[in-house]
Write a protein that binds this DNA or RNA. Structure first.
Length: 230
DNA sequence: GCGACAG
DNA sequence: ATCTTGTCGC
């Protein structure tokens, strides 16, 4: 079975694929319980074609780690703003397939529909894997928003071309906000609600933060590839 | 034409 | 994304 890859695509072909996959996106209120949640992230050395992908599974709402899946892979598709999925989704998909137990909801580091063509990495992954996903990015990609109060939990809609595509959420008092947007089988309010419940002691919500930590340790050779029960 | 631009 | 150096604050 051939693993998913976008390495032979041109940016033009990638744009076309995004426009096709967009018709499969499902944005709706959450209609399932969340007892487990996962965080997905990528790590790599600058200028290297090797990328390290990881997904960490947590119990929800306790946010206690259950286990994690780590995989190393080569990529040729370059990083181009708006096309992040073509670089990271293949590796993340392998890590996903290696998970012995799938989470009720996945949080991906990046945007969902808060994207120029409404197909950010979180939406892309959700459509391909057919699983609930929410995107949580550290920086805006597109859209406008009003200044938000410094209070923890305050949030304002992220608007792109007159559509509410996500929300800007202050996870900590007076700290830079994060950008939340639904990816698949979630809507904006539901995404903000869940991400808010995922905030621990840091600016970055636990799923994504812990995924970043473990995949970084993996890249540095501090933890082995494969699935590890925690 | 000019500015913006996830990871 | 990654790496470095340095400062501020609990």
């Amino acid at each position: 079975m051939g693993a998913l890859t976008y390495d032979t695509l041109t940016v033009t072909a990638a744009t076309q694929l995004q426009n096709e996959l967009r018709d499969e996106i499902i944005i709706q209120a959450r209609d399932f319980p969340v007892n487990t949640i996962a965080g997905a992230d990528i790590s790599f050395n600058k200028f290297s074609p090797t990328i390290y992908a990881g997904i960490i599974l947590l119990r929800f709402p306790e946010l206690i780690p259950i286990g994690y899946s780590l995989v190393k892979k080569e990529v040729r598709f370059p990083y181009v703003p708006g096309y992040l999925a073509f670089r990271e989704v293949p590796a993340l998909m392998t890590a996903w397939e290696n998970l012995p137990q799938k989470p009720d909801l996945l949080v991906v580091d990046g945007h969902g529909i808060a994207h120029p063509r409404r197909m950010g990495i979180a939406a892309h992954f959700g459509v391909v894997a057919k699983t609930p996903v929410v995107g949580c990015a550290k920086k805006v990609l597109c859209g406008r928003y009003e200044e938000i109060p410094p209070e923890q939990g305050s949030n304002t809609p992220l608007i792109f071309k007159n559509d509410v595509v996500g929300a800007v959420l202050r996870t900590k008092y007076a700290v830079r906000p994060v950008f939340v947007s639904p990816g698949y089988r979630m809507d904006v309010p539901g995404s903000v609600e869940i991400i808010t419940q995922c905030v621990g002691r840091y600016r970055i919500p636990e799923p994504t933060r812990l995924a970043h930590n473990i995949v970084n340790k993996f890249r540095l050779g501090e933890v082995p590839e494969g699935y590890t029960e925690v």
